[in-house]
Simulated scan of single mutants.
Amino acid sequence: MDPARLCQIFFSLGTVVDVGGPLIPPFREYIMNYGSRSTTSTSTSSARHQNTFAWLLEYIGSFQVPHTWFTHYYVISVASSVFWAVQISTQGTAFEFLASLSKSRPATMTMNQVFLAWLLMTIQGTRRLYESIAFTKPSQSKMWAGMWIIGMAFYVFMGISVWIEGITSLKYRGPQRTFLEFSTPTVRTLIAVPMFLVASGVQYECHKHLASLKKYTLPRQFWFQWVVCPHYTSECLIYLAIAIAVSPQGQMLNRTVLAGLGFVASNLAVTADSTRKWYIEKFGIEKVAGRWRMIPYVY
């Protein structure tokens, strides 16, 4: 199967689960929620034990790993960036394998875009790895082991997705041709790179603020005055910026990265909604009133 199509299918399946999962309360509670957001009352739990389907989901969800294992996502992301940098530059075995499966496309990324895609993803993965190490506090929070595995798979697929639509350019570059061609930045680059940098900066500040809070404290930093989870907003903008920057000729967005953005947005939307509900339960609705979950004026 064409690697780009495979990545799109993986992301699309994840999006379907993220959108449909919350419609099934036991699935949302036992599989999708984690940490403090997954706590339920004893009476509710007992009632659901009467339902075989709910019991099965509870059993599946009982296989958990520490929430701090989120760090593994970014280890995978950085490792993927390094691996594909070597493979692409040397046209190694893994690259040749993907190239043999890839269909030729009339619209492809330039080699400059391939480098930019790799650079932006490397910056994102490296920054998030640093934040996970520097800001993560010891915690008893858990998450479903399946979510941990899917999260790592996401970064494996995204590490490929950011450059795979440029594989035609990479396959046919001659041995004497340099990887980069210096030229005037395109309008897309002039829009996408500042968007990426600003969103990355905002997300860093949000994570730093969250790390500075005492346990179970309502965030009050500037961005949190408007949005419950502005760090999720930033995450979506980061991938949107990459989708713009590396869109093939004749396209507004890179379709494979856009599919990944759909997965990210749908997944974070569920968590943002759970976070808002938890804030209301913990601090009262008046403390959260006027704050959008993730996307101002939309959601």
Rank of each mutant, 00 (worst) to 15 (best):
D2A: 09
P3L: 09
R5P: 07
R5F: 10
C7T: 05
I9G: 10
F10Y: 03
S12Q: 06
G14F: 05
V19K: 11
G21P: 04
P22C: 08
L23E: 13
R28N: 14
N33Y: 14
N33L: 15
Y34W: 08
S36Y: 14
S41H: 09
S41N: 12
S43F: 06
T44S: 14
S46C: 13
S46V: 12
A47N: 10
Q50L: 11
F53Y: 10
A54M: 04
W55P: 08
W55Q: 14
L57Y: 02
Y59V: 15
S62N: 00
S62Y: 01
V65N: 01
V65H: 02
P66Q: 00
T68S: 07
Y74F: 15
S77H: 14
S80Q: 11
S81C: 10
A85I: 15
T90W: 03
G92T: 00
E96W: 05
L101Q: 10
T108H: 04
M109I: 11
N112R: 07
L120I: 00
L120M: 02
M121C: 11
M121R: 13
F135C: 04
K137Q: 08
P138F: 00
G146H: 03
M147P: 06
I149R: 02
F154C: 07
V156Q: 03
V156I: 14
V156R: 02
F157N: 01
G159M: 03
S161M: 09
R173M: 01
Q176G: 11
T178N: 15
L180P: 07
L180Y: 08
F182H: 13
P185L: 05
T186A: 01
T189Q: 06
T189A: 06
M195T: 04
V198P: 02
Q203V: 07
Q203F: 00
E205A: 15
H207W: 01
H209E: 12
H209K: 08
Y216V: 12
L218E: 00
L218S: 12
P219R: 03
P219S: 02
R220Q: 15
F222S: 02
F222P: 00
W223V: 12
Q225T: 10
Q225S: 12
V227R: 06
V227A: 05
T233C: 09
T233M: 08
T233A: 13
A241E: 00
A243H: 04
A243Y: 03
A245L: 01
S247E: 12
P248V: 05
P248F: 02
G250D: 02
M252F: 12
M252C: 14
R255T: 15
V257I: 13
L258Y: 10
L258Q: 10
A259Y: 05
G262T: 03
V264H: 09
A269W: 14
S274L: 15
S274V: 11
R276H: 13
K277Y: 07
Y279V: 05
E281W: 11
E281S: 15
K282G: 10
I285Y: 14
K287A: 08
W292C: 04
I295V: 15
P296F: 07
P296M: 08
